[in-house]
Design a protein around this nucleic acid. Structure first.
Length: 381
RNA sequence: GUGGCCAUCGUUCAACGGUUAGGACUUCGGUUUGUGGUACCGAUAAUCAGGGUUCGAUUCCCUGUGGCCACC
């Protein structure tokens, strides 16, 4: 499933084999939470150089429902995307929902109880149900339901969340194996399963969680919780430590990472997979990522983000800027349009603006990953 | 031409004769890290002109200018 290649100086490279094709690591996945990378088509995603996407169990179970996606022929056919698809379990989303408004649900040993934001109906997402839903979705990579906590809660609470995450992971694994057997899937055709390492900012709890998950056994392991503090500062020590307690032969998934510099840092610390809303969300709101010369000179500094810059296309200075956003970019926006035109599209609030900005940012992220992957991967054919 | 009504940020609405004339939209900046994001935060910006009454006028009175409505 995961074949480690070389370390090219940026971090380790490799190849991950999924039911929908191989994908070189490191790679970045945009979030198509509700089965859409907002405002873009599957063809545009693929054209930007993005190899895999992330959908969300929590969102899709509510709308349109796992059964409907299954009846549509699975998530790939449903959304017209042929590449690898990973589904997040929804643990983080429910935690966010409850953290924001305790009235919306609660976490019990059985699972996560929550009220639907759509109609107020009550739901219980158990570890088993999360796995079953992901099988119905027909994804290539699954994530177990976990129990995330904010970084600033007491250690005892984090510790309890770690133990629960491990117990849930075990239940998830058992349900996963049942589903494999019931569906008669082979080791070649089955999806990959990821555990999630929790433990907040406490190294010993991260270690404990990773060990508990290793005993159960997963194809890959994720970094759970948040990798930055409240001010957005990168938590280098805990990110490094967590990678180190995950088996070296397993693929490592840094959930929710992140800014370009955070991805570069995480990759240097041993992480292989990333997903984040940033390129599309910020694109929708008019922020564009621009490569700076340093990116092409191999000077990927770990401590700064100076290999790129961002612009806000709303700014007045673009009103009559008839040059491309980035002359060195080959995305549909930069290849065919001027900054002035994009500025205009945002000003008149045409969806084409956020679409072009999103695909531009995805192209930026894809090229960043290509850069990190620069040296050829030794693949075992 | 006669009568009536009206005139406040770019726009549209507030403000008893009484603190620094307020909101919404626009505009100008910024924020966004396993997407409840068509979201959020901040800033700039106005009493039509000239007189009068008053301790004090966006508010009351007069004149002018401009607009809207009705009637010849």
């Amino acid at each position: 499933m995961f074949t480690i290649g070389t370390d090219n100086g940026h971090g380790r490279t490799g190849t991950l084999r999924t039911g929908s094709g191989r994908i070189p690591t490191p790679f970045f996945m945009p979030d198509a939470t509700r089965a859409a990378v907002r405002g873009t088509t599957a063809a545009e995603i693929a054209q930007s150089g993005i190899g895999a996407i992330v959908v969300n169990t929590y969102h899709l179970m509510l709308q349109p429902g796992a059964m409907l996606v299954r009846d549509a022929g699975g998530i790939h056919r449903f959304m017209g995307w042929e590449g690898p698809v990973l589904s997040d379990s929804g643990g983080y989303q429910i935690y966010s929902l409850i953290h924001r408004n305790p009235e919306m649900g609660k976490i019990t040993e059985e699972g996560a109880e929550f009220k639907s934001v759509l109609d107020g109906s009550k739901h219980l997402l158990t570890p088993e149900r999360a796995i079953a839903i992901q099988f119905d979705l027909g994804v290539d990579m699954m994530v177990v339901l976990d129990d995330p906590r904010p970084n600033d809660v007491p250690e005892t609470e984090i510790s309890e969340a770690v133990e629960r995450t491990i117990r849930w992971a075990k239940r998830s694994r058992e349900e996963f194996d049942r589903q494999i057997a019931a569906r008669g899937l082979s080791d070649e055709s089955r999806p990959l399963l990821f555990g999630v390492v929790q433990g907040g900012m406490f190294p010993e709890l991260r270690t404990r969680c990773a060990e508990g998950l290793r005993e159960i056994g997963f194809d890959g392991y994720g970094f759970g919780g948040r990798h930055v503090d409240a001010e957005g500062n990168f938590l280098e020590d805990i990110v490094r430590h967590t990678a180190a307690v995950i088996p070296v032969e397993s693929v490592r998934f840094a959930l929710g990472v992140g800014t370009p510099e955070d991805i570069v840092r995480c990759h240097a610390l041993g992480w292989d997979m990333f997903d984040c809303v940033i390129p599309t969300r910020e694109g929708r709101h008019g922020r564009l990522f621009l490569r700076k010369k340093k990116l092409t000179t191999d000077n990927l500094q770990l401590t700064t983000g100076d290999f790129y810059e961002t612009i806000n296309i709303h700014n007045e200075r673009f009103t009559a800027d008839f040059t491309p956003i980035d002359p060195d970019c080959d995305c549909p926006l930069c290849a065919n349009h001027t900054a002035s035109y994009l500025h205009h599209l945002f000003r008149v609030n045409d969806p084409l603006g956020s679409r072009l900005a999103s695909t531009h940012n995805l192209r930026f992220y894809a090229r960043l990953m290509e850069q990190l992957h620069k040296e050829k991967v030794k693949t075992e054919e």
